[in-house]
């Protein structure tokens, strides 16, 4: 518990540093491209088009899904995927890539995964706004249900941060983890109702799918953006489950991080 407080208080105390370094992160990533920052949006746009074409236009033959047209249905869920996927991948690499350039040991090490996540968060907010505008044109206007969205954004952020604390620590001595993560994430995309609705499956399989916390986040985003219901209240058991999982992961991540952080540089 003490580790959790250490880690979280570092995030608060060095928030200014976090924000500035996250901006540099974006700068470094897009420096060599002519289109620069625009790639943060072009890339998701291309993927969304392909997924829509294959799953919506092709496989589903333009039929509605769970009572909604496919495109807005997919858009409202996939938006968090473009935050989740790169944050987890880059977040896990963050420490071993950067530890060497830290010229001082008293740099708050737990900031490093968060810098990456925060830099992805900027483009997530951008993408989210665009998705909201699009949905307005597609017949899903702003509704009272938007109010629950910050909960899922915050929950999602905390979940990604907790996972990254664990993976970035493990990654300093087990580099194979990166391969494992990539494979898992590729699988997760299809195990979550992002591109297809899982409601056609037997109930027990759906329950198994729901073990995956990303499931909760995707549904939460979707119900808010499409203005359907108060998801976190109507599914309060699932909300509790998500909170519990996130907290346990945060606990494990913080303990591991604090335990090993002095020795990171020795491992590499």
């Amino acid at each position: 518990m003490k580790s959790v407080i250490t880690v979280l208080s570092e995030q608060v105390k060095y928030f200014y540093l976090l924000r500035r370094l996250a901006l540099y992160e974006i700068k470094i990533a897009n420096k060599n491209n002519y289109l620069g920052l625009a790639w943060e949006l072009i890339n998701p746009a291309i993927q969304i088009f392909i997924y829509w074409f294959i799953f919506g236009f092709g496989i589903r033959e333009r039929q509605p899904i769970e009572g909604d047209p496919f495109f807005p249905w997919m858009l409202s869920g996939i938006v968090i995927w473009f935050f989740f996927n790169p944050s987890i991948i880059e977040g896990s690499k963050s420490i071993f890539q950067r530890v060497k350039m830290l010229s001082k040991m008293n740099f708050p090490m737990s900031l490093i995964p968060n810098i990456i996540i925060f830099s992805k968060f900027y483009s997530h907010i951008g993408l989210l706004v665009i998705v909201m505008v699009l949905l307005n044109f597609l017949g899903y206007p702003i509704s009272i249900y938007y109010l629950q969205l910050p909960l899922y954004i915050f929950g999602g952020y905390l979940f990604i941060f907790s996972v990254s604390l664990i993976t970035s620590t493990l990654n300093t001595f087990i580099r194979d983890l990166q391969m494992f993560l990539q494979a898992t994430l590729r699988m997760l995309l299809y195990m979550t109702p992002i591109l297809w609705a899982t409601s056609s499956l037997p109930v027990w399989i759906q329950t198994v799918f729901k073990i995956n916390p990303l499931y909760y986040l995707v549904e939460g985003y979707r119900y808010s953006l499409l203005g359907k219901e108060w998801y976190f209240i109507n599914h309060w058991e699932y909300t509790l489950y998500f909170c519990a999982v996130t907290f346990v992961l945060l606990l494990i991540g913080s303990v591991m991080h604090v335990k090993f952080r002095r020795r990171f540089i020795d491992f590499i």
């Binding site: 830290l102 010229s103 001082k104 040991m105 008293n106 002095r262 020795r263 540089i265 020795d266």
Partner: peptide
């Protein structure tokens, strides 16, 4: 030794 004094290596 100099890295340890600088606090880079534990």
């Amino acid at each position: 030794l100099s890295n340890i004094i600088a606090g880079i290596l534990p």
